[in-house]
Design a protein around this nucleic acid. Sequence first.
DNA 1: TTGTTAATGATAATCATTATCATCACATGA
DNA 2: TCATGTGATGATAATGATTATCATTAACAA
Lengths: 143, 143
Amino acid sequence: MKKEKEIFNQFLSRKNLRATPQRDLVLDVFLTREDHITAEQLYDVVKKNDPSIGQATIYRFLKLMLDAGLAREVDFGDGVMRYEGSYNHPHHDHLICRGCGKTIEVVDSVIEELQRRVAESFGFELTDHEMYLYGLCEVCRKK
Amino acid sequence: MKKEKEIFNQFLSRKNLRATPQRDLVLDVFLTREDHITAEQLYDVVKKNDPSIGQATIYRFLKLMLDAGLAREVDFGDGVMRYEGSYNHPHHDHLICRGCGKTIEVVDSVIEELQRRVAESFGFELTDHEMYLYGLCEVCRKK
DNA sequence: TTGTTAATGATAATCATTATCATCACATGA
DNA sequence: TCATGTGATGATAATGATTATCATTAACAA
């Protein structure tokens, strides 16, 4: 069994929540995805395996994943929240092409350190941050 | 007359749009604000001066301001868009307290340069970015 | 097996924002 | 001055993602 499933089940029992076939299925589908996914996209794929599932179950599942620390929200500012697995997938930021929407995960430890320092210089203790770099990828630039 | 009003009126005539008392009033109110403001907050203040104004006019006005380059959108991820004046108010990022919601404008030229480099290293030409630093301010940390 | 209570699916509600549309009022030309 | 074309307005409906509600179903511990 995948480690994430183990953690998720531990999380459920710790919170006195129940393991259900729906949660199992949605988690399976979620784990097949490499990158971020919207609730709707997840719903569409899950429906192929079980057309009787409701989308409320998807949204509830995603909340649980956040709570369990197994997923993160990604907000590209287009009005739809995306979710990405966070197990064995450390923090990173996103580089997004304004042309084709392609996204690349990036991380720069110097930037991270500077962010902490900037926060500290204002008396803040940094808890987290969001950084989205928008630009044009090589392909889109040539058009 | 404030420079922003001059620019806004030039923008209107260039686009064959009309100067109206409503736009005048909303712009006046908008310019009194130092920091960012939501459409609803702007609407509430404007209503005190002219209760007959509709909120659609507020939203339309904000779109025009973006178009004219006189305002920027700020998205703190709480489902409400905020707007800040951009005339004589260069780019900056935001440091937000998770405790009390206080925001501080920050800018770090080294981070900006590194962002450009990160993008370039993936073949991207950086057009813009969003960076939100979340933490706890000095006051909230003591609680 | 049963009883408790969480989970589900359908659907209504929410909330910010956008679209629609009838009416109004600028600005230009006669 | 007045007519006219068209942009602007305000009221309201629509949208779209997400959340709440609720009757019914199903885990799971005893």
